[in-house]
Design a protein around this nucleic acid. Structure first.
Lengths: 344, 344
DNA sequence: TGCCAAATATGAACCGATCCATAATGTCAT
DNA sequence: ATGACATTATGGATCGGTTCATATTTGGCA
């Protein structure tokens, strides 16, 4: 591997000059510059990253901490973050924690040893105070939280407006004439799940429909629970004409349940889902969803983080970027009025 | 951040001794060792990674080059690689190239600058000779190819036995009594696609069924082509009783086509698919598949790479690990004999 | 033409580890 | 007690960049 000294010798200049050409710290002009650039090309010189970050104390590397890349929500987010990072000259180190706080702590130790310039994290839900996040920030390493914010931590974040997304879904169902709308939520320990139920209630109250606890089921964001609870709800006495599922996997489960119950969708029961699902465009009926801008979340989170690193943000207040989900109306809510209104 | 000098001063020893304690290069004994360890703990000392790799010329970092993390095949592979890397004290840098050879070249430049100790790559298909791979190897950076091997390159690799997997699928269909078996393949430019058709032919020839070109359709590994070609094949004069789809996305498309044609699966037509698909366990009929050990591929590829880095492999011959796919018999081929045999 | 300030190039110190030649210490036989 | 040898600790050179104080060149003006 060619070093900066080789380049300097070949170009007949000092190492300092080569460094200046590379970094543009000081303008190097005319023939000198050309000779240096030629030498760099001839020797296929790549500045040694270790040497560079040793002296400059910046690694041009970001840490990204997520639960699990095999969870279909994360690849898009990671891709967005990576595209932004690469565009701005940074590189991403990805770590899976499976939502274990202990793994998070371990990972943070590594990030520190590697001198990452900043950290993106979709933090694990935890009742403990997030001391490792706080410590990292105290060390002066900028942090951006994606999707979830730990309680009581003044930190930059990029979020989806879960309340709004859920409300968009339910408003749409209401606009289609539904009045008896069931909801299958996630664990109330997750802020995300709480917000989506809140959005459901907002939409109902806007048009004066009273909240009916008998129409609510608490799931766990997995297909199986969507399947079981949809059956449960459809076989109960308060039979809904429409269903709002708080996440995509449960939406798939609901679809399966409805098929097995011999119900037609949307004629017998309409379905709207929070979160798009791979394969949703293959099976009938195509699901009406609000889709989360996961790619955007990764991309904008990374931009924000790098702005902080570059010191381009002076505000002492934590920055919060709230992204709007997008309602995609498809077959599962469309083309039929509810039974109770028109007889479907 | 504490440095090794701080630790040395605090423990009242030389920096060399601290280094020896950390790396175990030379055994440091008794009270000295204890004092050093205590100082390390007190100062929460993490050796600076940049300094370390500058001097030692090893970064304990691997590059991983894939097409696109949002393609559902890759997350499992990445997760496998990451788990193996972390276990062995390495860290993974992931790069998406979208299968563009030019991006691959750019990425290889970065990998070089970062002094990665080795590279895992699921190489983009290309007609050009893979000079960047060759150059990287010539520089002494070990390389392991995953899933696909560039032609004419003697390189370590971990592969799935595509011929065998396809043959397993088709043998199973034959065992269920089918004789007229259609195949929807991928682009013949992909070795993978070629191999899967080869496996199809192997299974047929084993039992003396002649190969019938009229039963073959060339798809492109996307759901849409599976959908269109399944309709095409089912409406053609050589109506198959069973179908082998060369990848998962096309399998989803086939399922949709069959539903729309009003055919029952497996009674009217059986389906077997290469490659598992997310959501395959939700929709009926559940698809019979051979699933690729993507996690294993990442994990074992990384182990192999690190063995090479550690110089534990002396053989000059490239190592090739061939993983066997697993046949998962589910509803789409089960529980019914083909029409032509039993009248279904 | 000569002088001074501004602009530009130089090279040595430095970042924080590793590693090796050398020094110091310890062990044992004589 | 002493020399010979093995064992262990030391400290300085080194990796390849960046950076800044200093040296050199350039250009404008009297």
């Amino acid at each position: 591997m060619a070093t900066i000294k080789n380049v300097a010798r070949r170009a007949g200049v000092s190492v300092g000059t080569v460094s200046n050409v590379i970094n543009g710290t000081v303008a190097v002009k005319g023939p000198l510059r050309e000779r240096v650039e030629e030498a760099i090309r001839d020797l296929v010189f790549h500045p040694n990253h270790a040497a560079r970050s040793l002296k400059s104390r910046r690694s041009h590397t970001l840490g990204m901490v997520i639960a699990d890349i095999t969870n279909p929500f994360f690849p898009l987010m990671v891709r967005g973050a990576e595209d932004a990072a690469l565009k701005l000259g940074y590189l991403l180190n990805i770590f899976n924690t499976d939502d274990h706080v202990e793994r998070e702590r371990t990972v943070f130790g590594m990030l520190r040893a590697r001198c990452v310039d900043g950290v993106l994290i979709a933090a694990a839900p935890s009742s403990d105070p997030p001391t490792h996040l706080r410590d990292m920030m105290a060390t002066g390493v900028p942090l951006v939280c994606l999707d979830r914010i730990p309680a009581d931590l003044p930190v930059d974040s990029v979020l989806v407006d879960n309340v709004m997304g859920a409300a968009m879904c339910v408003r749409h169902l209401i606009a289609m004439g539904h009045r008896t709308i069931g909801v299958i939520s996630g664990s109330p320990r997750l802020q995300t799940a709480q917000d989506r139920v809140a959005g459901y209630r907002v939409a109902l109250s806007e048009v004066g429909i009273p909240f009916n606890p008998a129409l609510v089921r608490e799931g766990d964001f997995r297909a199986e629970s969507g399947y079981l609870l949809t059956k449960d709800l459809c076989l109960s006495s308060t039979f809904p004409t429409a269903l709002f599922l708080a996440n995509g996997m449960m939406g798939m489960g609901a679809l399966k349940a409805i098929q097995e119950l011999g119900l037609r969708c949307p004629q017998d029961i309409a379905i709207a889902v929070f979160d798009d699902v791979p394969g949703a465009d293959i099976f009938r009926p195509h699901l009406t969803v609000v889709s989360q801008p996961a790619y955007q979340m990764g991309y904008q989170g990374t931009e924000l983080l790098i702005q902080h690193i570059a010191g381009k943000i002076e505000s002492k207040e934590p920055v919060r970027i709230v992204l709007q989900p997008e309602l995609k109306i498809r077959e599962s809510t469309n083309g039929a009025r509810p039974r109770t209104t028109t007889g479907g």
